[in-house]
Write a protein that binds this DNA or RNA. Structure first.
Lengths: 148, 148
DNA sequence: CTGTTTGCAAATGGTTTGCATAACC
DNA sequence: GGTTATGCAAACCATTTGCAAACAG
């Protein structure tokens, strides 16, 4: 949890970016909310609890910086806003199960797509570097008629 | 091509929506541009060539109506705007190869995902109804260093 | 100190909405 | 003729940008 902040500091320093409390705090928020898919507004609200004077623009600029540095990834669920999650160093974490009833988003961490990716790459002469896969349907709760 | 317009008319009438030249024309545009992934603005521009007085709002309202009726599908490529394509009745057409260099979007029509979908459905107790898969990388032209 | 980063407010761009008019049935 | 659909303009919402002040190195 801690080591991630240290890692961030090193990476920032290495690229001549400055280590600021805002950047550290936003990173902290990501660590405290792993597995969630936060929007910029979510992050702004959460950071404000500890640092009320932070501006939304700073959050956006930080998210862009982190994304550019490969620390976080942007994911799109088609609800009009971007969402962000920590990148899982090397591993893809872009298999999402999205419940069309309760809106719950679960992650599938297995890299079952690898074989598919390889064959598509061959057939279509396409060098695949990354992918994003979304499955829409009913989650285990909703399929049983439970509410969230 | 024609039969699609007739199909649209029947579906509109059946649901007590009105058959208007704007709606027919937008459908025509989709038929004339199969395989492309048009944004609302693209469609507005194309329709305007034949019907200059159409408003952007009408385009948006029509797209929403068509999507609600299942005639078209919304797809998101993460460039900030929605894109639309004709639904392929029953078949998924949501495997996209997106070139991160030239921006070209190709479709993969095979339903290679079916097995994967089945096993994920079992493991995660998730009823999968639809999916959307995007592969990002270099297309055959860009990988050879050609320009578009 | 010097250049980067921040906060604020204003601008932007895609999409939605209110309302009076026009068009379908 | 009654209701739905359209066009226009204004509203909206997520995101971006300009700029002067604050801050890291």
């Amino acid at each position: 949890m801690h080591e991630r902040l240290q890692f961030l500091q090193e990476k920032l320093t290495a690229k001549n970016y400055r280590v600021t409390p805002q950047r550290l705090l936003i990173m902290q928020i990501f660590c405290d909310h792993e597995g969630e898919h936060l929007s910029a507004e979510d992050i702004h609200r959460l950071v404000q609890e500890q640092f009320p004077e932070i501006g939304l623009a700073t959050v956006y600029r930080t998210l862009e910086l982190f994304a550019k540095m490969g620390i976080i990834e942007r994911v799109h669920f088609g609800d009009g806003k971007n969402r962000y999650e920590l990148s899982q160093h090397g591993k893809h974490a872009h298999h999402h199960l999205i419940c069309i009833k309760c809106g719950d988003v679960a992650e599938v961490n297995e890299d079952l797509l690898e074989r598919l990716e390889r064959s598509i790459g061959e057939v279509y002469e396409f060098d695949i570097l990354d992918h994003q896969v979304k499955f829409y349907g009913y989650c285990h709760r909703c399929r049983r008629g439970e509410s969230k």
